[in-house]
Each structure stands twice: as structure tokens, then as C-alpha cells.
Design a binder for these strands. Structure first.
Lengths: 221, 221
DNA sequence: ACAGGCCGTTAACCATGAGTTAACCTGTTT
DNA sequence: AAACAGGTTAACTCATGGTTAACGGCCTGT
């Protein structure tokens, strides 16, 4: 699950990002409305978390443009305490939910998940890399039409690589995202090995590449 | 049957809740419009009972947003004696029925059931997974043409899995939906076991799959 | 009112295989 | 050839999920 978080308060943004990452989301940040709008239009996310009070372009305006452009992504608004008007406006403009600051983090996560779940019929949950198809909903992975079984750890890792397909992902980044903070271990090597055995062995075209000194990248050849 | 009751008068809310529970409904409460709206959007109910006079956000506004968001849940309005305008407005906005306070409880239940029943005709109440047919309306489940008896708990769980067929449903999610919030128990394991014995045992093709570390999924093989 | 049975729930136990570690191997870089 | 990055393998442990039994409450029928 990949989330775009648009929030100008960097401390708060960082805190939310970390919290979400602990809940196994992948998070990208934008610090003002314009940047947020650009990213939402350019890349694909499972949901956008949008602060209302933003520099350059406020959240309501961002939302308005997104909807006008028929960008069908679930939007969760962050509103100041009491901003009733903004909320109503936001909901009428097509926001999917809102939460008032300050909020209980677990509630925030619950709402975010709910918002994503409601969209599941609309937005596809599958990622395609060459002849590899990863379906996060069904927890299944197919290569060349063949379903391959993965343990939950294996799935997390390849799913994370898939969310970041075409980008080199470093070993510590994987550890951080999948296992939690600061393990000093060779566990990623081990899992990459397992995964390769399952999806690359016996195929002419590899999908997982090692970038020495940098990390791993999942991409079509 | 799960009902969301949005009513700010706590005495009345509690009384209605108890009455409904005696009629074997499961009832959740919200005490203002905002909370009610949130719950209606986030969780799934068979019907929403909505007071019109509510703090923070009135019932009409709640209804308006619900319908705008295409949340297709039957809504029964509670109106003050004589509030004719609100009623008309409510019905135009897509409420399914209204009842004026004070009301006869048996009439209230009858209307509520009617409202739910009417919806069943609209939204198909049967879910098909392979040779498994689940009819939420008739409360029956058939596999390969054979009717199988289920207790009400068993039915709730398999029905919830069926509603989410093709998606992995986590253990806590099932607990939340079927049993209420935050139980720490192995009850889902036990019920999955019961259900499997009834629908999968003796069949070559399984329908319920365990995804270790993630949950359960109901799907055709 | 009483007995019996069903349902919901909890608890205990068991088996499996996933998660992790460590040791060793291979290939690349300097 | 030493140092280093990454790959491979095997072994251990322990969490997860499966299964069964037991208990209490509620409803039913007598």
C-alpha cells in the first residue's frame, strides 16, 4: 500500500510517515499543495492523505483539481479541530473521509484502511512487472500465469520491491520497512535468495537485479 | 443484522438499542452527526437509523453526504412530531422511510425490517463462489446443491468472507466485524474450523484458504 | 420446573513450517 | 591475495494456526 502524505508541518509529516510505515505502508511526502497535486497526478497511490492548511495551494483546492481531473484516488483529509465548514466542503468535493487534528493514530490508520478498502472494487490492487503479477488483495503472485506460493515475509519483501519497481531499494531500507528498525543481520540476503529461487530460477529474463553497493531493483529486463 | 443508530438523546438511544437487541439486531451507537457519518462510511451496516436533530452535523446533512458518496445503506429517519419539511427533504435525499417521535416501538421495528427487506430485493443477496451459494436473505448456504445448516455465528463469518471474496481478510478484521471491537481470543480459528468441516470437508476443491500471517480468503480454486 | 441439547466461548495441546541465525561459499574489487 | 559484498545452505526455535474438549447459558420440549 502506497500513500501520498501532503503535510507542511515537517515534524508531523515525519511522525505520520513513520507510524504508517510501522503499519507496513509505503509513504511519500509532499510539503505543499502544488507539490502534492503534482505527485498525485503523476504517480499512483492507494490513497492520498491531505492536510487542509497548506502553503502555496490549500488542500481543498488540491482536492478540487484532483476530482476535476477524474483522478480516482481515495482522499483522507486532515482538518484542524472544529473546521466543520472545511469538512463539509471537502466531503462534498469528493473527499472520502476526514480526521481532525489532533487525532489518535490508531483511529487514523483505521480510517485510512477503511477508505482504501472501500475503493478496492474500483482501483486495482495488482502490480505488473513483465509477466509477473502481484495481487496484494488476494496475496497471490503469478509469473507467466503460474501461481507461486510465498510466505508472508517473502511476500512483504517482493511487494515492497514491486511498489518501488524501477528504483533501487537498499538493504537497510528493506530491513526498515519489512522487519522494523535497525536489525543487523543478513536476513534480506536470505529472503532475496528464496524469492529469486521462486520467481527467477528457470526463467530466461530475470526480474530482480542486484546493484552492488546500493541494493536491489525489481524491473522488467 | 447490524444497525447503526445515530441519536443524541442517550436515554432514548439506549432504550432503542435494547429494544432492537431483543429483536436480535446488533446495534452500534453514534451520538452526533459527524460520528454517525464516520461510522456509516467506515463500517458496514444493514441499516442506519438517523435522528434529524443532531449536534455538530444534522441528520439531513449526514444523509446528503452518504448518498453523494454512493453508500447504499437503507436509512430510516427519526423526525420530530410535525417536521414535515425535514421529512420531504429527507425522502428526496434518498431516505427510505421516516418515523415521527414519539413512536410505537413495534411499528418502528416493523418499518426498519421493511426498509431492510426492500433493499434485499435491490441488491442481490446471493453470493456465488464456485459451487457455493450463500443467500444472506434466506440465511441459507448450499454447496453443490446441498443445503448446509449454519449457526448464526458461523453464518456471519462465512458471509463476511463471501462479501470479501478474493481478498485476504485478517483475523482481527473478522473479529471486529462479527464480534465487536477488540476481543483477544482464538474464536475465529475455532469457527473457521467448524465452517471448513461443513463446507470443505469431503470436497476435492477447497474454498477457504489460510494465508499464513495474513488471514483467510474465500475464493474459487 | 426440569432435562436435554445446541450454541458460543474459552482453554489446552499439538503439528507444521515460517523466521531467523550463523557459517561457509563465490565472485568482484583494489 | 586480501578484503569485501553478496549468495547459499542448513539448523534451530518458536509463533501460528488446527483441533478437540469442556463449560456455561439459553432455549425447547415435556
Amino acid at each position: 500500500m502506497k500513500i501520498l502524505l501532503v503535510e507542511d508541518d515537517k515534524n508531523l509529516a515525519e511522525a505520520i510517515k513513520e507510524g504508517l510505515e510501522e503499519n507496513s505502508f509505503v509513504v511519500e511526502l509532499a510539503f505543499d499543495g502544488e507539490e502534492g497535486l503534482y505527485m498525485a497526478k503523476t504517480f499512483t497511490y492507494n490513497a492520498v492523505v491531505l492536510d487542509i492548511m497548506l502553503p502555496v495551494m490549500d488542500g481543498i483546492a488540491v482536492l478540487e483539481v484532483l476530482r476535476k481531473k477524474k483522478i480516482n484516488v481515495p482522499v483522507l483529509l486532515l482538518t484542524a479541530r472544529g473546521g466543520l465548514e472545511d469538512r463539509i466542503k471537502g466531503l462534498n468535493l469528493g473527499a472520502d473521509d476526514y480526521i481532525s487534528k489532533p487525532f489518535e493514530f490508531s483511529e487514523f490508520v483505521a480510517r485510512l484502511k477503511a477508505v482504501i478498502r472501500r475503493y478496492k472494487g474500483v482501483a486495482s490492487s495488482t502490480i505488473v512487472i513483465g509477466d509477473l503479477v502481484i495481487d496484494a488483495n488476494a496475496h497471490t503472485i503469478k509469473r507467466a500465469g503460474r501461481t507461486i506460493d510465498f510466505s508472508s515475509r517473502e511476500f512483504s519483501i517482493i511487494h515492497y520491491l514491486a511498489l518501488n519497481k524501477g528504483r533501487v531499494v537498499s538493504n537497510p531500507e528493506i530491513v526498515e520497512h519489512v522487519f522494523g528498525p535497525d536489525l543487523e543481520t543478513n536476513i534480506v540476503k536470505v529472503y532475496i535468495n528464496y524469492i529469486r529461487n521462486k520467481i527467477d530460477r528457470g526463467f530466461r529474463k530475470k526480474l530482480i537485479y542486484t546493484v552492488r553497493g546500493a541494493g536491489y531493483i525489481l524491473k522488467e529486463p
